[in-house]
Design a protein around this nucleic acid. Structure first.
Lengths: 347, 347
DNA sequence: CCTTGACATGACATCGGTGTCATGACATCA
DNA sequence: TGATGTCATGACACCGATGTCATGTCAAGG
């Protein structure tokens, strides 16, 4: 591959002049510039990033570590990649700031994180982002403290700056919307109980009920996932049947995510119920491939992953610029997406 | 950040000895090694990739350009990111080969490709992969011919090595399976007509019919998308109603993808038809978030994107190693995923 | 006892750019 | 007319690692 010296020789000037043409700093005679540019074109010159990095203080690189790309290997969650919207948001903000993004994937093995982080440090990244596939607590990635690090969709015990979805407010908002639409018997079929999101959303659900003066009925809350197991079709069916068998059955069922809601559509219909005429359904995530395509389209709560990525990147940039008075935890709200799967009850 | 000289001074040895400890080449006294390692740990030394690249012939980097991450910005395709499985497959193979993957995203704008390619070349990547979001023809990315380039999920007129899904064989295999299950009236609701996949799959559909001696009935083929428009709910409904109104209606409807099939579920049920008892349904893509979660689970054809990525990476590695007798076009087959949405008809 | 070779280590040049400083040719100004 | 400033360009050192070659020490072999 051609070097700046080759170009210089070809053009009959010094390497430094070629450098000036490349970077547009010092003055260069218009004629000389043309000769140099012709030489570069002829030799197919591309400048070496390695060499210029030797002198530069800043690399212009940001590293992102994620399990998102390969999460789907995990058999307990064979499904979506919506968490990649986080990467998308990060990418957009960083590109605008002129940074180049390096992405590495854990390939599902958490123990590969240190090695990946190290590779990034060898490339002298200016900052690091760790993206989790769902809202959870993680072990703190061991990174020298002088390199800014931001966690997206997760948090650690060490207090590393974290950007996470506001699951509590999300489910509260949805529940309040349902109440405003006239619903009083609101069922909730949860994700796995040990998940952070489950705890927070359940809290939001209860907060909304309490705020409206509606007594919480434990019989209306059921588990759609069993700990340690993959999504269990039978469990969702059982949960739904139990809800339908209640003396005062729910008028609406909220599911822990859109996939479960999709499954719910099929199960409810096989029980002879029309959606939303006989029973209303809501999901969570705004997994648009499902929510918008289902018939009828699904009312759900947007998991604002793209925005989450944008916020994470913006905070990282701020930290790179030296700001230190940034919040340790940032909640990203998720708006309710109202569609036709919920019927408005006339009071 | 500490350099190899800092470590050398701290340990009281020459930089070269530190280098030897780092790389484990030349012999180093066990005691000396310990002292050096202690110094490295104390200073938090991380070697500079830029500096070592100066001397190295090989960068160990591979660049991947994709619109996959941001494709969803495109309002006409608001849905999935299953094409990211390609990235996943690439990543897995490259990681095994000890290469580091750099990913750049077009952010939806095709004109950003040259700039991204250039950035990669500045990093002296050993090879490049271009990933498209769906099977299509693209304008040839202008890349110096000495850098190996492989196209994944797309092809160009210049004959750049391309890895693409075998859409024809996929739909043919599905159709043959349906015929084997006793179906004779097989409908096909297509994606947009100008898509490469649509043409190939339609061909596979006809090949299968011809192979079984079944006359093709043009009335059984309908368009589910209109050119230039997003997925049009009304169009799918009209297509289905037209099929159901035929004198000899189909016993099974194949949809152009799983999302359309999901929509089909809702529409068919709203017409009072049970799946698969009254009518069978098949999709395409094996978009598992949908296919496995639908009730009943959807028979479909796997778009072996992960494998496609693996093949692309493997071919790129071979080209990097200097092999040149590799095929210009490689078809990746997609197996039929048989689930409960298709009823076996007793003859 | 001297030669030979393995071991352990260091001096130095080099990779490809860029920052600093120097130089020569003119133009401008007092 | 001489002093000063600007333009255009080049010489040289330097960034941080590593390849090459040289050097010194010590043990084995003749």
């Amino acid at each position: 591959m051609a070097t700046i010296y080759d170009v210089a020789k070809q053009a009959g000037v010094s390497p430094k002049t070629v450098s000036r043409v490349l970077n547009g700093d010092g003055p260069v005679n218009a004629e000389t510039r043309q000769v140099v540019e012709a030489a570069m074109a002829e030799l197919g010159y591309v400048r070496s990033n390695a060499a210029r990095m030797m002198r530069a203080t800043r690399s212009g690189l940001v590293g992102l570590v994620t399990g998102a790309i390969s999460t789907s290997i995990d058999p307990t969650r064979p499904t979506g990649l919506p968490d990649l919207f986080i990467v998308q948001g990060v990418q957009a903000v960083l590109a605008k700031a002129g940074k180049t993004l390096m992405i590495a994937d854990t390939a599902g093995r958490q123990d590969s994180v240190p090695g990946l982080m190290r590779t990034f440090l060898e490339h002298r990244v200016e900052g690091l982002i760790y993206v989790a596939d769902h809202h959870k607590e993680i072990a703190s990635p061991g990174v020298p403290s002088q390199v800014p690090l931001v966690l997206a969709n997760c948090f650690d015990a060490a207090g590393t700056p974290a950007i996470i979805p506001d699951d509590r407010a999300g489910q509260q908002g949805l529940t309040e919307s349902l109440i405003a639409a006239g619903h009083r018997r609101i069922a909730y079929v949860t994700l796995m109980g040990e998940m952070v999101a489950t705890r927070l959303r359940l809290q939001g659900y209860h907060d909304a009920l309490a705020g409206a003066g509606i007594a919480a009925d434990p019989a209306l809350v059921a588990a759609g996932y069993r700990e340690g197991y993959a999504q269990d079709g039978a469990l969702v069916e059982n949960a739904i049947d139990a809800l339908l068998a209640l003396d005062r059955p729910p008028t609406v069922i909220c599911f822990g995510n859109d996939e479960m809601a999709m499954r719910g559509y099929g199960i409810l219909r096989s029980r002879g119920l029309a959606i939303p005429d006989d029973i209303s359904v809501a999901g969570y995530d705004d997994y648009r491939a499902i929510a918008e395509t289902l018939f009828p389209p699904l009312t759900t709560v947007e998991l604002a992953y793209r925005q989450l990525g944008e916020v994470a990147a913006a905070q990282l940039l701020a930290r790179i610029e030296g700001q230190s008075d940034l919040p340790q935890q940032t909640l990203v709200p998720g708006p309710v997406r109202w569609r036709q799967s919920v019927r408005r009850l006339t009071a």
